[in-house]
């Protein structure tokens, strides 16, 4: 078991024939992901990486039965691509693109919700079910199969955490990079119950950062509904207020969104919170012993 995606998931790529789309689609296919086609308007009818190219997402869905779309289109066209996927009946869009305007994502997300389409990202590494299906840009070899679910706002911290989890002798069920933008798709609150319901997942690692209050919402949810052990790290304890730390959403504004308040809320919810990200693996080993 796993959450959201597995070895049978059929995936199309929007922005299939572009440089990024091509490189990462190839890597995903090599990992075992069922990439069944792609969309590049104007290139319909061609073949790319041995798979059919379509002009529209609707055609791609009708012809391939794909349920997931991996989106690599440039920032200015992301909202259009997301809405097209939603309109075509895609169940989950994984938006890798970095730099999408916030206003565009606000409209795209509202439309996706209306059309019952889940989204992950933007500006994220994607989602991976270990040794089955990789939809994104993460280095697949780090994610050995196991019993730990992983949710993270940051790409490289996802890799760092997964690496520590594996070094401690555990492995990953599914890892989801949710992205660090102000408006994102699936977040902790939606993903935690999926991991709670997944019998193969025995514990959850969650990586947050300064800015917004998604981690506070997660803490409230964990307190009420999550029975599995959770280990958390919040990046940005040493970040100054008012400065944007790389991610568009990572900013402490008006004294809110600090690491300290998020860590306190998670601790109060019974989460094992580590101060140093170097201790994620060790903390996980501790909670798994209990």
């Amino acid at each position: 078991m796993s959450i959201l995606v597995n070895k049978d998931t059929k995936v199309i790529v929007q922005g299939f024939t572009g440089k990024e789309g091509t490189f990462h689609a190839e890597q995903c296919m090599a990992y075992g992901t069922k990439i069944v086609g792609g969309v590049t308007p104007g290139k319909g009818g061609q073949e790319h990486l041995g798979q059919p190219v379509f002009n529209t997402v609707a055609e791609a869905v009708a012809s391939t039965g794909a349920t997931v779309s991996m989106i690599f289109v440039p920032p200015a066209f992301v909202s259009d691509a997301v809405m097209e996927a939603a309109d075509a009946g895609i169940a989950l869009a994984v938006i890798i693109t970095e730099g999408a305007p916030v206003k565009d994502m606000m409209f795209a997300k509202a439309y996706a919700v209306k059309k019952d389409m889940m989204t992950i990202g933007p500006n994220c590494p994607g989602i991976i079910t270990a040794e089955e299906c990789k939809i994104g840009i993460m280095p697949g070899f780090i994610f050995k199969k196991g019993n730990i679910g992983l949710i993270s706002k940051s790409g490289t911290l996802t890799y760092e955490s997964a690496n520590q989890v594996v070094k401690e002798g555990f492995g990953i069920t599914t890892a989801v990079g949710i992205g660090g933008d102000p408006i994102i798709g699936l977040s902790y609150k939606q993903l935690l119950p999926m991991f709670e319901a997944d019998p193969e997942t025995h514990a959850i690692v969650m990586i947050g950062e300064i800015g917004g209050d998604l981690e506070i919402q997660a803490a409230a949810y964990i307190k009420e509904h999550i029975t599995k052990p959770v280990v958390a790290f919040i990046a940005g304890q040493t970040a100054p207020a008012g400065k944007r730390m790389g991610h568009a959403g990572a900013i402490i504004s008006g004294g809110a969104g600090t690491a300290a308040e998020k860590m306190a809320a998670l601790e109060a919810a019974g989460v094992k919170v580590v101060v140093s990200p170097a201790d994620i693996g060790k903390a996980l080993a501790e909670v798994m012993k209990k």
């Binding site: 993270s152 940051s154 790409g155 490289t156 911290l157 790290f233 990046a235 940005g236 304890q237 040493t238």
Partner: peptide
Amino acid sequence: MVNGAGLAMGTMDTINYEGGKPANFLD
């Protein structure tokens, strides 16, 4: 000097945890 914004913040936090003070954030 770090790759990725999250890991860059995490690195600053680790330096702080080990008793030092980071001079910068750099992704």
